[in-house]
């Protein structure tokens, strides 16, 4: 792979941006937040994050989705954790999210608007909710 320059990166970004601008009118309504605390990192949160980025890009829903990182969500026992906020659906925290589950979450929850069973966990622990 040849070393890419910032100018080359800018050109690539402009090419993809033209395609995105047409869809941006609806605004970004969906949020996907990946817990990246020590516990999350140790359990593989970076793999989950990358799988989400890849899947969102592949499903061409980039224009509607905000992907963010945060610290520990208080669910260390089921890391990696991912919170998904989709209008019209309950805000959901998924736990034990590896790369395959992350791709599933994007396909089922973000695209098909269905919850992914078997990986839904409670809201964050009391120490975070009460702060």
């Amino acid at each position: 792979m040849a070393k890419m320059t910032l100018d080359q990166l800018r050109k690539l970004r402009e090419e993809t941006k033209g395609e995105m601008t047409r869809r941006e009118t609806e605004g970004k309504e969906i949020q996907v937040i990946v817990g990246m605390g020590t516990c999350g990192i140790a359990a593989g949160a970076k793999d989950a994050f990358e799988a989400i980025v890849k899947a969102v890009d592949e499903h061409k829903i980039t224009a509607n989705v905000v992907i963010r990182q945060t610290g520990c969500m208080g669910l260390c026992h089921v890391e990696p954790t991912v919170e998904v906020i989709v209008p019209g659906m309950p805000a959901t925290i998924y736990g034990k999210v590896d790369a395959a589950i992350a791709a599933d979450i994007v396909r089922k929850h973000l695209v098909d608007r269905k919850l992914v069973s078997g990986h839904i966990y409670d809201r964050p622990a009391i120490d975070i909710v009460n702060k």
Binding site: D57, T62, R68
Partner: peptide, 9 residues
Amino acid sequence: FTDAGALVL
């Protein structure tokens, strides 16, 4: 940096 397209690039 919250945009998947930007993150892939």
